[in-house]
Structure formats: C-alpha cells, structure tokens
C-alpha cells in the first residue's frame, strides 16, 4: 500500500515538472513601432517586453510597459506617455491570445501561425487575429509578428494641430525569443 503512494507521488512530481516546463517566457522581448506620414516619420523601441507562451494550451501573452518605449526625440516620448497613451492611467499594453495551429515544440522548425485574441491599448480592448511566425530552435521559441494598430480603434486622440504628423495606422513589429521558464 505504501508503495502505491510512493509511485503516485513520483508520478505527480513528474507531471508537475513537465507542466512547469510548458511555460516559455522572456522579459526582454522587442517591440518597434513606426508612424509614417509625408510630414514626419516617428519610430520607437522597447526592449523589455514580457512574453509568455504555454506550449500545452498554445496561449500567448505579450505585455509592455508604455513608458519603456524609447524615442530619439525625448519630447515626443513625453508626449506619447502624457498625451496619447496616458501611461499613468494605462501603464501597459497587452495582447493575449491563442495560437490556432498545432505545433510540435519538441522539433526545430519554422511555422506560420495565426494568433486570435484581444489587444488592449489605452484601456480599450479589441478582438484581433494576428499572423506571425514561430521558430522552434534548440529548446527556444522565437515569436515574430507584424501588424497594424489603428489609433482610433483604441480611442487615442490626436490633436488637430499634429494630425498630419501622426499616422492613422501605426505599424508594430514584435520579436521575442522565449526560453523555458524556471
């Protein structure tokens, strides 16, 4: 009888070890975004994006602190936080979704994927399906995605004075290499 408990506990231990290895994560994913208009090109970069992937359920979460975006022009950076993103009120931008494809995470390979979920920016949540690339290589998982964000979709108000300088659609690029979470 005692032996059964022992076997069981070993089994459970194994299960819990394998399930904790199903989370892949990084704290230094990258997001770049670009706003292109005939008047002005603006771009910003963050290198401290938190990305988490559950390989068992295919759930993905991408979250970035808005104040971590660096602009070459610091005045723009201040305006980005103060006027457009209102980062004191809405400190983070978040995407959470599910990868639609079945992926063998144990084999090296490149997969085209689509992720369906919700994108929350400026406190406004939108349903989105975003195409991307997933690269499994030697125990790491790289996620790449390019997509557009409409400024009006997230109720970000652009003053009429600068309307010509800020694009209606911002192009966003994500690049993150995930490792098994300890």
């Amino acid at each position: 009888m005692k032996n059964i408990y022992l076997y069981l506990s070993v089994l459970f231990m194994l299960v819990s070890v394998t399930t904790s290895a199903q989370i892949y994560s990084t704290k230094d994913g990258k997001i770049d975004f670009f706003s292109k208009t005939p008047v002005e090109d603006i771009e910003a970069h963050s290198g401290v994006v938190v990305v988490l992937l559950n390989t068992k359920t295919n759930d993905v979460v991408v979250q970035v602190n808005n104040t971590s975006f660096q602009f070459p022009n610091k005045l723009m950076q201040e305006h980005f936080n103060e006027k457009y993103m209102e980062s004191e009120q809405y400190p983070t931008s978040t995407f959470k979704g599910k990868i639609a494809q079945v992926i063998d995470y144990s084999k090296n390979g490149t997969y085209d994927v689509t992720v369906t979920g919700t994108l929350t920016i400026h406190g406004v949540t939108k349903e989105r399906t975003i195409p991307g690339k997933l690269i499994v290589k030697d125990g790491t998982i790289q996620l790449l995605a390019d997509f557009m964000v409409k400024v009006v979709d997230h109720k970000i108000q652009v003053p009429k004075l600068v309307v010509a300088k800020i694009a209606e659609e911002i192009s966003v690029h994500i690049d993150a290499v995930l490792k098994p979470r300890q």
């Binding site: 408990y5 069981l8 506990s9 459970f12 231990m13 299960v15 819990s16 070890v17 394998t18 399930t19 904790s20 199903q22 989370i23 994560s25 704290k27 938190v50 988490l52 992937l53 559950n54 068992k56 359920t57 759930d59 993905v60 979460v61 991408v62 979250q63 602190n65 400190p91 983070t92 978040t94 959470k96 599910k98």
Partner: peptide, 28 residues
C-alpha cells in the same frame, strides 16, 4: 499525504490564459 500530492500536482496544471497574464503583470 494524498492531499498534499494532489495539490502538488494541480500547481503545475492550471496555467491558463489568465494565469499567463497574471505572471506578465507580476513581471511588469
């Protein structure tokens, strides 16, 4: 002991979307 082991087992099992989000929130 059984309860303990069961609980131990569940710890690893319940990572759903919202738990991922919780983790992300914690890191941030």
């Amino acid at each position: 002991l059984t309860l303990f082991i069961l609980a131990f087992c569940f710890v690893g099992k319940v990572f759903a979307q919202d738990d991922l989000l919780k983790l992300a929130d914690e890191e941030n």
